[in-house]
């Protein structure tokens, strides 16, 4: 699944570790989501969306 997490993180000048703290996950989890190796669960997707004040669809895209 494609996502804009890396871009959104960069806009705030956050490291993966900083974002991980905000989401209460490991830095490896953030990296896996950014690189598309891990699709977040719905609860985590909602946490990400709330953190950036966007909808899930504005961050994640299931089109190839």
């Amino acid at each position: 699944m494609n996502n804009r997490l890396k871009v959104l993180r960069a806009e705030r000048d956050w490291s993966q570790a900083t974002l991980a703290v905000h989401l209460d996950v490991s830095r490896q989890a953030v990296n896996a989501i950014e690189t598309g190796k891990h699709d977040p669960s719905l609860p985590l997707a909602f946490r990400i969306a709330r953190l950036f004040d966007l909808s899930i669809e504005e961050i994640f895209n299931d089109e190839a």
Binding site: A17, A20, V21, L23, D24, V25, S26, R27
Partner: peptide
């Protein structure tokens, strides 16, 4: 200061 890793990870 902000923690370096998430509390649950710690």
């Amino acid at each position: 200061p902000e923690p370096k890793i998430a509390p649950s990870v710690q």
